[in-house]
Computed example of a mutant assay.
Amino acid sequence: MTGDAVVLGLQPARLPSRALALLIDLVVIWAAYLLISIGLALATASLDEAAAMAISIASFLLVLVGAPIAVETLSHGRSLGKLACGLRVVRDDGGPIRFRHALMRGAMGVVEILMTFGVVACIASLVSERGRRIGDVFAGTLVVRERVASAPNTAVPPPPPWLVGRFTGVDLSAVPDGLWLEIRQYLTRMTQLDPAIGRRLAERLADELVARTGTPPPAGVPAAAFLAGVVAERQARDARRAFGPTYGPTYGPGMGMVPGAFPAASAPADGPAPAPVPPPPLSPPPASPSPSSSSAPAPRTTGFAPPA
């Protein structure tokens, strides 16, 4: 929840991905620390023991503590390990971290990671609901996943053409967004479901939709086709509100039919299944005027009246 009361859909990183990122960071940091220590040992060979010890402690603090803090501050929560694993450190409200957040995480990391070999950090991450270690709790931060696999966007199949325009008078204001989401998920996956299970699911969703709208489906229309027709009507209304009253989907003869998408209505227990609603007859195209009926074309009117 941000300061503007906006809910962010962030996915917290769990222990395996965080442990892998930390392992990569530790390998890089320890390799740099060993190289720097060897260089300092050769450069300070002529100094006394106390000076050499002070230099080694300073190099330890600068490389193992100061370097991670500087990297997280400058990269806004990304280190080499987190960048490789697709992770990032953010504040509790989803914003980028600053120096004080990185400083608190680095200071607590000395105790719970370096001094205890990561045992305290692992236990805290397992106990926490969002996988946070003690440094994250004190700093008010959270490690989230930046690369999240997205599901393929499947279009909702259009209704049969003979249902287009049949639900223009239906009141859809009382239908909640959760029911629309369930109907959309069913329509995009109905060809992958078992026919009996899909039919029962479509009938349940149709009953909920009828209870919200107060308009039953036409006689003989399968539940799946009824759901597709109502969803198409809602999409058409949204399009007209966004782009103008003349905008909307158009379906020609034979368009919008997905083979096997809309199963036939099941037969009731006391009689045969009702006959499906036949499509409306197509009106014949207007006859073109014959050459003998008119010798000259009709004058075109532009709607412009010359001044008197």
Rank of each mutant, 00 (worst) to 15 (best):
residue 236 A to D: 15
residue 239 A to N: 11
residue 177 D to T: 06
residue 251 Y to Q: 15
residue 196 A to E: 11
residue 210 V to R: 01
residue 44 T to P: 00
residue 122 C to W: 11
residue 190 M to H: 12
residue 72 E to F: 07
residue 19 A to C: 04
residue 158 P to H: 05
residue 283 S to M: 12
residue 116 T to G: 07
residue 185 Q to W: 04
residue 167 F to W: 03
residue 235 Q to M: 12
residue 165 G to A: 05
residue 176 P to L: 02
residue 46 S to C: 00
residue 252 G to D: 08
residue 63 V to S: 09
residue 248 G to H: 08
residue 12 P to M: 06
residue 306 P to M: 10
residue 256 G to W: 14
residue 15 L to E: 05
residue 308 A to W: 03
residue 245 P to D: 15
residue 180 W to T: 01
residue 161 P to F: 12
residue 116 T to S: 15
residue 144 V to S: 04
residue 158 P to C: 00
residue 81 G to N: 08
residue 176 P to R: 03
residue 190 M to W: 01
residue 103 L to Y: 05
residue 100 R to P: 06
residue 2 T to V: 02
residue 220 G to P: 03
residue 35 L to W: 12
residue 294 S to M: 13
residue 60 F to P: 01
residue 128 S to N: 08
residue 293 S to R: 10
residue 85 C to N: 06
residue 132 R to Q: 15
residue 264 A to M: 11
residue 239 A to Q: 13
residue 220 G to W: 00
residue 38 I to H: 07
residue 183 I to H: 01
residue 268 P to E: 08
residue 135 G to Y: 03
residue 109 G to P: 02
residue 127 V to E: 08
residue 189 R to H: 10
residue 125 S to I: 15
residue 48 D to Y: 05
residue 17 S to E: 15
residue 250 T to E: 11
residue 147 R to K: 06
residue 199 R to P: 00
residue 289 P to H: 02
residue 20 L to D: 00
residue 264 A to W: 10
residue 56 S to N: 14
residue 190 M to L: 12
residue 253 P to Y: 12
residue 55 I to W: 08
residue 66 G to A: 05
residue 111 V to N: 01
residue 248 G to W: 03
residue 212 R to Y: 10
residue 107 A to I: 15
residue 13 A to Q: 10
residue 253 P to T: 10
residue 123 I to C: 04
residue 14 R to K: 12
residue 145 R to I: 07
residue 200 R to N: 08
residue 107 A to C: 13
residue 119 V to I: 13
residue 284 P to Q: 11
residue 191 T to K: 11
residue 40 L to F: 12
residue 195 P to V: 06
residue 178 G to S: 13
residue 52 A to W: 10
residue 162 W to N: 09
residue 128 S to G: 05
residue 221 V to T: 14
residue 11 Q to W: 10
residue 260 G to Y: 03
residue 40 L to H: 02
residue 262 F to S: 03
residue 165 G to S: 05
residue 150 S to Y: 03
residue 106 G to S: 02
residue 27 V to C: 10
residue 92 D to R: 14
residue 258 V to G: 01
residue 18 R to L: 03
residue 160 P to R: 11
residue 260 G to V: 06
residue 242 A to W: 01
residue 224 A to H: 10
residue 224 A to I: 07
residue 235 Q to I: 03
residue 248 G to N: 12
residue 169 G to T: 08
residue 235 Q to F: 06
residue 263 P to M: 08
residue 277 V to T: 14
residue 132 R to Y: 05
residue 214 G to Q: 10
residue 99 F to H: 08
residue 89 V to A: 14
residue 13 A to V: 14
residue 144 V to H: 08
residue 22 L to G: 12
residue 192 Q to D: 14
residue 16 P to M: 04
residue 31 A to M: 13
residue 91 R to M: 14
residue 227 L to T: 01
residue 146 E to G: 05
residue 258 V to N: 02
residue 55 I to H: 07
residue 277 V to Q: 15
residue 203 E to P: 00
residue 215 T to V: 15
residue 125 S to K: 02
residue 15 L to G: 07
residue 219 A to L: 09
residue 204 R to E: 13
residue 89 V to L: 14
residue 30 W to S: 10
residue 40 L to Y: 06
residue 182 E to N: 04
residue 242 A to M: 12
residue 59 S to Y: 01
residue 73 T to F: 14
residue 89 V to T: 15
